[in-house]
């Protein structure tokens, strides 16, 4: 039967990526999920599978607090990044001549030529106690003593992460803006709307898929980032991923680390789904 051979052909075609996805995505995820139901090492008498890790994660105030802070910092990073990325993407799409667009996009990716770690250290140098910002301000006589509030706190985390994720946020918005048929904007002007109202009624709704992609691209990985908070966050900027790392590596408490991982992923998934549902009107009618 033709449909059967089609199915087999299709399965053959997707099997390498399928295998890849199972091995590298579903496998580790399953492991983490499994670990989160195992008893903790200091409590070996418990049953084989237990919910006590989850109970602890909800009852010990430190864990919800860290998760809440992580989501807040990531939310702030996302807002800052997307708000900065939109005008840049808009400028390139609408005001750069077509010949120069790829050059501009290329320039935007330049920060990516160095490793993430180096960029984090760079910000440390810039924001530090004896860093570029403080020495400049002191050199100019604007301040007497170095500013303390710019390093080792959540603000520094937000700045560093926003910088690191800017190009990721710019590109999807740029693509969405490029896809907008310019005659739609003229039609809006023709129907009586000025530049601003045209932006609100036509450009922005049509750019929403790109904006949403940017939000998810920035929000999802930053919730789980642990390098930046560790390097520039200080005690007040510690995020959930630092705790997960601590549980796994230092305390050798895989079940607790796995539980926190599962809870983090669940929160991110719920937030992403809420965003998608809220934006459904903009996503449905594209094309």
């Amino acid at each position: 039967m033709p449909s059967d051979t089609h199915t087999i052909k299709g399965l053959k075609l997707v099997s390498p990526p399928l295998l890849y996805a199972v091995l590298l995505l579903a496998g580790p995820l399953g492991m983490i999920l499994l670990f989160s139901f195992l008893p903790q090492p200091d409590n070996p008498t418990e049953a084989t599978f237990t919910l006590s890790n989850y109970a602890e994660a909800f009852n010990d105030p430190i864990y919800p607090e860290l998760l809440r802070r992580s989501l807040l910092i990531s939310g702030a990073v996302t807002v800052v990044t997307v708000l900065l990325a939109f005008p840049i993407a808009y400028f390139i799409s609408f005001h750069v001549s077509p010949r120069h667009k790829s050059l501009w996009l290329f320039l935007i990716t330049i920060p990516f030529w160095t490793s993430y770690l180096i960029r984090v250290f760079l910000w440390k140098v810039i924001l530090g106690f004896n860093g570029v910002v403080n020495s400049s301000l002191m050199g100019l006589g604007l301040i007497e003593t170095p500013l303390q509030f710019i390093l080792y706190n959540p603000t520094a985390v937000v700045i560093t992460l926003a910088h690191a994720f800017a190009p990721f946020a710019i590109l999807p918005i740029f693509v969405a803006l490029e896809k907008i048929d310019r005659s739609l904007l003229e039609a809006s002007r023709d129907l009586g709307e000025n530049r601003l109202t045209t932006f609100i009624r036509v450009t922005l709704p049509l750019a929403m898929p790109g904006v949403l992609a940017s939000i998810l691209i920035v929000f999802i990985p930053t919730v789980g980032d642990y390098v930046t908070p560790e390097q520039v966050g200080g005690p007040g900027g510690t995020m959930i991923a630092n705790m997960i790392q601590l549980q796994f590596m230092r305390l050798d408490n895989q079940p607790m680390g796995a539980t926190l991982s599962v809870l983090t992923m669940a929160s991110v998934t719920v937030i992403a789904l809420i965003l998608l549902v809220l934006n459904r009107p903009f996503l449905r009618t594209q094309r």
Partner: peptide, 9 residues
């Protein structure tokens, strides 16, 4: 408009 420019959203 030649392309009709119907708002897709």
């Amino acid at each position: 408009f030649q392309s009709y420019a119907i708002f897709p959203h």
